[in-house]
């Protein structure tokens, strides 16, 4: 068994060396490890929704206008880059009138949608604040009621003790 032990140990060392050389998890396990998951918005709690609103509403305004401008055309190619960019920009200028005509309505719709979303989120926040205030008031009333109920029970039992149960309404 000693030989076997040594053989296995040398095998382990050899593999350990190989492991050290490979620092990527995907290569180590020979397969992809990351996956995409759907956003389960329908299952979100109040706090998760609030975080979602914060992260999702403001970026909406940044993508309102999908119309390409000449400056959006760039190239990283050294020699042929400049003429390609020139031609593309020229094409954009020439076709700009038509594309803008088509996309104007889309931009307007996007803007209104973003405004509406923001307004709805604001209204939800207002309602939530008012609901919290109402809950606090209800809680205070409930506390008062509980104290009154216990006071009443206390009075009843004292009265019953004093009268020997004769005046206790529950025994009538």
């Amino acid at each position: 068994m000693t030989d076997l032990n040594q053989e296995i140990e040398s095998l382990r060392r050899e593999l350990e060396e190989k492991k050290k050389e490979i620092r990527s998890l995907e290569k180590l396990v020979r397969g992809a490890i990351d996956r995409d998951f759907p956003l389960e918005v329908g299952e979100f709690s109040e706090r998760e929704l609030e975080d979602y609103f914060r992260d999702a509403v403001s970026p909406l305004k940044q993508v309102l206008d999908p119309r390409p401008g000449p400056k959006s055309v760039r190239s990283h190619r050294k020699i042929i880059g400049a003429p390609i960019v020139f031609l593309k920009r020229l094409f954009l200028r020439l076709s700009g009138f038509y594309t803008h005509l088509l996309l104007d309505e889309q931009v307007q719709f996007n803007r209104r949608s973003a405004e509406l979303t923001e307004a709805l989120v604001t209204r939800v926040r207002h309602y939530r604040d008012r609901l919290e205030q109402a809950e606090e008031k209800v809680a205070a009333f409930e506390e008062s009621l509980v104290i009154l109920k216990n006071k009443l029970e206390d009075l009843r039992s004292r009265l019953a003790a004093e009268t020997g149960g004769r005046d206790n309404p529950s025994t009538r």
Binding site: M1, L4, N5, I8, E9, L11, R12, L15, E16, K18, K19, I22, K27, L28, V29, R30, G31
Partner: peptide, 27 residues
């Protein structure tokens, strides 16, 4: 066995195979 593990599931699987042998055989 170890070579087959490495081929199919990568170096880590082969390494795990060796580690299990050592523990199981009481080394």
């Amino acid at each position: 066995e170890v070579e087959a593990a490495e081929r199919s599931a990568g170096v880590q699987a082969a390494y795990n195979c060796v580690r299990r042998m050592q523990a199981a055989l009481g080394f």
